[in-house]
Write a protein that binds this DNA or RNA. Sequence first.
DNA 1: ATTCCTTATGTTAGCGGTATCATGCACTTT
DNA 2: AAAGTGCATGATACCGCTAACATAAGGAAT
Lengths: 326, 326
Amino acid sequence: MADVAEIADVSMITVSRALRTPERVAPETRLRVEAAMAQVGYVPDLVAASLASRRSRVVAVVVPTIGSSIFSDTIEGMSDLLHGRGYQLIIGAGSYDKEGSESVITTLLGRRPDGLILTGSRHAKRARRMIEDARIPVVEMWELPPKPIDSAVGFSNRAAVRAIAAGLVEAGYRNVAFIGPSEGDARATQRRQGYADAMVRNGRTPIFIETPRPPSQMEHGAAAVARAAREHPEIDAACFTSDVLAIGALFQCQRLGWKVPGRFAIAGFGDFEIAAAATPALTTVSVPRYKIGEEAARLILGRIDGEIPAGQAVDLGFEVIWREST
Amino acid sequence: MADVAEIADVSMITVSRALRTPERVAPETRLRVEAAMAQVGYVPDLVAASLASRRSRVVAVVVPTIGSSIFSDTIEGMSDLLHGRGYQLIIGAGSYDKEGSESVITTLLGRRPDGLILTGSRHAKRARRMIEDARIPVVEMWELPPKPIDSAVGFSNRAAVRAIAAGLVEAGYRNVAFIGPSEGDARATQRRQGYADAMVRNGRTPIFIETPRPPSQMEHGAAAVARAAREHPEIDAACFTSDVLAIGALFQCQRLGWKVPGRFAIAGFGDFEIAAAATPALTTVSVPRYKIGEEAARLILGRIDGEIPAGQAVDLGFEVIWREST
DNA sequence: ATTCCTTATGTTAGCGGTATCATGCACTTT
DNA sequence: AAAGTGCATGATACCGCTAACATAAGGAAT
């Protein structure tokens, strides 16, 4: 930066201003500075800028897993919006496992992000204390926690599965099961409750078939159907906690020669690309994955700039999409 | 840190050492420092540490898109290895579009990463100059460029599709087509060439069916098959540039009532989870997605630590997996 | 002409750590 | 006894940039 300043015959602070607040530099000077920057190939050091300005222009986000694609649309939504506003994203994986999340959060906070976006609300006490000590805005997403740390963006997982399960009952299915993991994911647990709500309301006995801990794989869905065929032949429909499980189940039904939905109706969750593309097309809950990311980003920026008060909760809703599989 | 130092009754530099090089601090002192850190809930400022030490412990990675899940396994591989070594990942999206990549690279380099991992080799001149000026190790991945910037980790996309296409010819299919995008992705282009190689060697005329620019969607595969049905009814097999397209095609065949592989044999690329789960299970090219990430991370760390010389190229190979769809 | 703005630019002092060199001390070695 | 060695710790000077305040010059208001 000193080089650029010398070439443009200005002081360093003017170079800094030409970069951060160009409107406060005379147009002619700005051109000289820009020419000098281009000449030497100057790439501003954002690390130093962060330290000096106490604003890193970084937002940290914690997702349960990067490998699974569930959150990639959400991350893309955040990323698209944040980059446009000059922010960078740093991603930490690991809240499927409570222990891990603490070390992830320490590292992320070490980078002094201006905001923090979290998935999953069950954080260890120390993690929660660190987050509070950081005194930065926090947005929780993908659910609407009863006792949010700060703000939240999501929808009711429970109401969503309640709706789709009730729909199956209304459609005339006699024995509707719930297939998904029983632990390891707060959102899956809420979905389980939504299913239970619907069964209880309709005077049915819930039937739960458990799958391994998340991240869920297609194979888990296939195995669950195989088990249902042996142990619960009466089941004629099921709500899955994810399209991934549902698609695995769908293929398994094809192998078993089961008609879908004739012999076995399948309802997924997520409305991933494959849900609409499959034959039969999958009935599922459509959730605004990309929009959750965008909205979380918008909210965190609003909080950072002080334009939005703390404690906002945004319910983006869901939509049950009835297709051929039910 | 000053607080911690005072409580532990040492100087700041000793706190710093207790953190970075604990073996160089007397055990008894270290315990005092650790107790003090726990007491005040000290989270070291990695931004300041980066500036002072000129090592950010950050690795930047550029992928064509975050939303698509193709690279998420690779990112997970990198992330797993890097976090274990105390490094953080910052991700930039946007080399499907050449213009975008320059601004992405500027922002990433602004964070002063210790290393850079790139996907895709066609970079604008200015981007390439910036990368060279940054004087940090670079690893390109997912292909083996003829003229790498520094190191590379990948496999031959061309040889992979050459192998699978040749296999289809050997298996007796008469009219094998290639279905994929014709531009926008260097790797897809290399795959196209591999197909062409196989056709030419076997004295066949290549048949290309184009799909929209990446990221590819299932729908594109379905539409391509619909078009093939009308315009090239003689086609009895096809190589797709991705499992995503292939699965879309598979569902489309089910809708058309086409037997797979009887009427139309399908070969994908990538060996995603769905390839094995589908019925019929998908013949495809298995590529070490996770391992590419791990190896790229290992290579970049080796380069950073000066243990590995520049210019290494690691070919992780591929494997053609013959399943039911061909 | 004096005062008061406004605009463009500069000076100084950090931001929170770490590299580097220096220091003090106990223990060998000659 | 003098000198050398290794270890634990400390003092100082930055790292590259920006916040905050200072300054200068020109124009408008009085």
